[in-house]
Design a binder for these strands. Structure first.
Lengths: 130, 130
DNA sequence: TTCGTTGCAAACATTTTGCAGTTTC
DNA sequence: GAAACTGCAAAATGTTTGCAACGAA
């Protein structure tokens, strides 16, 4: 039985952890609405901010002006479809050796991590192009 | 002598090509105002859009909600300071061998290029942290 | 005269903030 | 009761669009 002010923070995390689609705040909001019809966008945004500060959620990029989130916080490469905006995890790449230290060697920077993002077309969009 | 309707499109490109700061549209607008006091944000945005469609300009990422642009369109790694938002070119990295083809091998994707972005603190911000 | 460029104002979309009611401890 | 959570409404911000005036060819 849902009350108006039920705790929804953990639901935001659970919804994000349950998908591989790297949803935006709004997509997450729509998904959560199905279970919590009274949830507000403000709550989704507030909890995403909190989860990000805690380090239990990351933003993997901005697609069409919308931040895309991931509950898998271990650094891993992504793919973004330039046409439909789908965000996928990229599998099967060898771990590059300490790229971060190499970058620091020749530049005035202090690297904590790096992001590797591939761009192109997903299978579905590539099929449409033909 | 500046007229109200002087051609400003090429000035947008020139301003972007003249800096390594990977400015945002608004930064570019403020820079151009010094030379073209009557220039409008609309013109800067319109020309950035056109240049991007032409392929003579790229967006290297979104920092604090602002798109950052680069007239150097050849793919190269960048660094973004998590504190001040500075965007730097990263030098001295060895070219990884056909990462794009490797990614395609194990994933249902068609890669046209990839972006490598290092994150951390720039020298100035690292100094302040101490 | 046709087409592309410019700039103002308004519209848009995503995200943030102010605030008051609610729940938890 | 203090502190944290929720949701509504409004604000803030970056970007786009409608449109009319201007300029180039």
């Amino acid at each position: 039985m849902e009350t108006k002010y039920a705790r929804k923070g953990s639901a935001v995390y659970a919804a994000l952890a349950a998908t591989k689609l790297h949803p935006s705040a709004d997509t997450l909001y729509r998904d959560l609405q199905k279970v919590y019809p009274s949830i507000s966008r403000t709550t989704v945004y507030a909890n995403l901010t909190k989860l990000r500060e805690e380090g239990s959620v990351i933003c993997v990029g901005v697609v069409d002006g919308r931040e895309r989130f991931d509950a898998n916080t271990s650094p891993h490469p992504h793919f973004i479809c330039d046409q439909c905006g789908t965000v996928l995890d990229v599998e099967g790449l060898p771990k590059p050796p300490s790229l971060d230290r190499q970058a620091e060697e020749h530049n005035p920077i202090h690297v904590s991590y790096h992001e590797l993002v591939f761009r192109g077309l997903c299978d579905a969009c590539a099929a449409c192009e033909k």
